Simulated assay, not measured.
Amino acid sequence: MQISTYEIEGPVLITPKIFGDSRGYFMEAFKDAWFRENVADVTFVQDNQSLSAQIGTIRGLHYQLAPMGQGKLVRCLRGAIFDVAVDIRKGSSTFGQWIGVTLTSENAQQLWVPEGFAHGFCTLEPDTEVFYKVTNPYSPEHDRGVAFDDPEIGIDWPMDTAQAVLSDKDKVQPKLSGLR
């Protein structure tokens, strides 16, 4: 597996080796010892999967408060997403900055979003399935979010955000300035 890092310390893009032939392909999607040694020494406790039927569905930006903060290892099983991590670590020199990457079923890349980052994605194809491992289980009392379209963050979503398909929860998330 190959690792790519960003100017914002924390998130990591993982590109697996894919071995293909006339039958299809094989790849190692996750290997605990390798991940602990090369990315983060964490334990994953829950796997989540979502299906988004429409192009332009935005899920996020979500995070959980300590002590239930979540690190997430995200990959796209079918379709394509623009996946985003926003630094919300108080006191961080990159607070409010974001990274974005296109994850597809074809490139099989995975984005590691560590605790201290808000996470979200936008679907680029219909019937997109996303799978992610998390380091803490979902906790409704610790669940929080940030507005996906907050101009202070300035995410360059690859779509007209006025046409975004959102949950009721994501329509009313607070701005980043509310986290300071």
Results as ranks from 00 to 15, higher is better:
149 D>H: 08
91 G>H: 06
39 V>R: 04
150 D>F: 07
120 G>I: 12
80 A>D: 06
111 L>Q: 06
89 R>G: 12
86 V>P: 03
70 Q>T: 14
126 P>K: 15
74 V>T: 02
142 H>C: 15
125 E>C: 13
128 T>Y: 09
50 S>Y: 04
90 K>W: 00
115 E>Q: 13
78 R>P: 00
84 V>Y: 09
126 P>M: 12
113 V>T: 05
98 W>P: 03
83 D>A: 14
67 P>K: 05
101 V>N: 04
42 V>Q: 08
168 D>C: 02
132 Y>F: 10
72 K>V: 00
152 E>I: 12
81 I>P: 08
106 E>R: 06
114 P>C: 10
62 H>G: 00
53 A>Q: 10
140 P>A: 13
40 A>W: 01
56 G>I: 01
85 A>G: 12
50 S>E: 06
99 I>D: 01
133 K>R: 13
44 F>W: 10
71 G>D: 07
125 E>T: 14
44 F>P: 06
103 L>Q: 04
84 V>L: 08
98 W>S: 13
67 P>W: 03
102 T>E: 13
37 E>Q: 14
164 A>M: 14
159 M>L: 15
124 L>P: 06
86 V>G: 04
67 P>T: 04
160 D>Y: 10
156 D>M: 00
154 G>C: 01
144 R>N: 15
142 H>P: 04
128 T>W: 11
147 A>Q: 05
99 I>T: 01
123 T>N: 06
66 A>L: 05
93 S>K: 09
50 S>C: 10
67 P>S: 08
93 S>V: 14
122 C>G: 03
123 T>H: 07
66 A>P: 12
157 W>K: 03
65 L>H: 05
65 L>F: 02
140 P>V: 11
70 Q>R: 06
38 N>I: 02
120 G>W: 10
133 K>A: 01
65 L>Q: 09
107 N>G: 08
40 A>M: 04
34 W>P: 06
143 D>Q: 11
62 H>M: 05
94 T>K: 10
138 Y>G: 03
130 V>Q: 04
95 F>V: 03
63 Y>C: 03
136 N>M: 01
102 T>W: 00
140 P>K: 14
164 A>S: 15
168 D>I: 00
139 S>R: 12
99 I>N: 02
90 K>P: 10
43 T>K: 15
153 I>P: 01
112 W>Q: 04
51 L>M: 14
39 V>F: 07
139 S>C: 15
90 K>E: 14
131 F>K: 02
57 T>R: 02
41 D>F: 00
51 L>S: 05
157 W>H: 00
86 V>T: 03
